[in-house]
Structures are given as C-alpha cells and as structure tokens.
Computed example of a mutant assay.
Amino acid sequence: MKNDNQVLITELEKLLRGGTAHVGFEDAIAELPEALLGQTPENLPYSIWQLVEHIRIAQADMLDFCRNPDYKALNWPEDYWPKETAPKDKAAFECSVRSIQEDLEAFIQLIHQGDLYTPFPHGEGQTLLREALQIADHTAYHVAEIVVIRRLLDVWR
C-alpha cells in the first residue's frame, strides 16, 4: 500500500493534468480554428489567445518561484497578461501551448522529488503543496473560460 504522501502526489498529478471532474487544458484547446484565437466575444475582456498566454505566464512564474531562491515577482497585472488579442501566427500559439506542457511536466517532477510541506525560505509561507494547488486551481478557472468562449463562438463540441 502506498504511503499517504505518495497518494497525495498521485492525486496532485491528476489534478494538475486536468482533474477528473471537468475538461482539461488539452481538450479545451483541441482543434481550435486559428482565426478564432484572437476573437473577443461581446462583453468579455479577453480572447482565447490571451487566456492561454496568461496560463503560460502564471504557471511559469509559479514554477520559477518554486525553483529559484532569487525569485523576483512579476508586476500584477501587467506582466501576467499579453497586450495582443491574437498570436502573431499559429506557431506562436503552438509555442505557448508547448511551454505550458513543458513547465507542467517540470512542476510535476518537483512534486515527485520535493518537500510538499516546508515553506520556501524566499516566500511568505508558500509551500510546494500550495503552489501545486494554486496552479491547478488557476488553470482550471481559465480553462473553463476558454470553453465558454468556444461556446460563444460556436466552436465547442
């Protein structure tokens, strides 16, 4: 039988990969028409591109915080949101998605190897466990927004 920490790490990994109760990031962005990446539906402040880039930036920032004892915080909110509503091309979008995937894998490696409970010396009480939950929560929130935008643009399954 697994010990409690192994059970927790297994469940955190499932949660970080998209959980089991809702659509994950990969499904939310699957088969997106390039022309719609920069569209902003009426009364919404951002596009799918901006949400994807925001997920990338925030996740990279949290990963940096966990790995870097000399971490320097970004400026909120300006450093966390792209100014452009659309990527310059499909390759830029794919690069952002790839970065999200690579950083997620790096973070999952951290939770498998790191101490989940000891606060980071350079933080204000944050632990690896807290950062894992924050990445999962933050990503799930914005994935839901991507799905809503896709529904509004009539490109959801």
Results as ranks from 00 to 15, higher is better:
Asp70Arg: 07
Asp70Ser: 07
Asp70Tyr: 07
Tyr71Leu: 06
Lys72Gln: 14
Lys72Gly: 03
Lys72Met: 04
Ala73Cys: 07
Ala73Phe: 10
Leu74Pro: 02
Leu74Thr: 06
Leu74Glu: 00
Asn75Pro: 00
Asn75His: 10
Asn75Trp: 03
Asn75Gln: 09
Asn75Tyr: 03
Trp76Cys: 03
Trp76Ser: 09
Trp76Thr: 07
Pro77Gln: 10
Pro77Glu: 13
Glu78Ala: 11
Glu78Phe: 06
Glu78Thr: 12
Asp79Trp: 08
Tyr80Gln: 12
Trp81Thr: 05
Trp81Gln: 04
Trp81His: 08
Lys83Pro: 04
Glu84Lys: 10
Thr85Lys: 11
Ala86Lys: 09
Pro87Met: 02
Pro87Phe: 04
Pro87Asn: 08
Pro87Lys: 00
Asp89Ser: 06
Asp89Cys: 04
Lys90Glu: 12
Lys90Ala: 13
Lys90Val: 11
Lys90Cys: 04
Ala91Gly: 01
Ala92Gly: 07
Ala92Asn: 01
Ala92Gln: 10
Phe93Lys: 02
Phe93Arg: 05
Phe93Cys: 04
Glu94Asn: 15
Glu94Gln: 14
Glu94Met: 13
Cys95Gln: 15
Cys95Asn: 13
Cys95Tyr: 11
Ser96Cys: 15
Ser96Lys: 01
Val97Gln: 01
Val97Asp: 05
Val97Phe: 01
Val97Lys: 04
Arg98Val: 06
Arg98Glu: 15
Arg98Gly: 07
Ser99Gly: 11
Ser99Ile: 03
Ile100Asp: 00
Ile100Arg: 01
Ile100Phe: 07
Ile100Lys: 01
Ile100Cys: 04
Ile100His: 05
Ile100Trp: 02
Gln101His: 12
Gln101Gly: 05
Gln101Ile: 11
Asp103His: 15
Asp103Ser: 14
Leu104Pro: 00
Leu104Ile: 02
Glu105Pro: 03
Glu105Asn: 15
Ala106Met: 11
Phe107Gly: 04
Phe107Val: 06
Phe107Trp: 01
Ile108Tyr: 03
Ile108Thr: 02
Ile108Ala: 04
Gln109Cys: 12
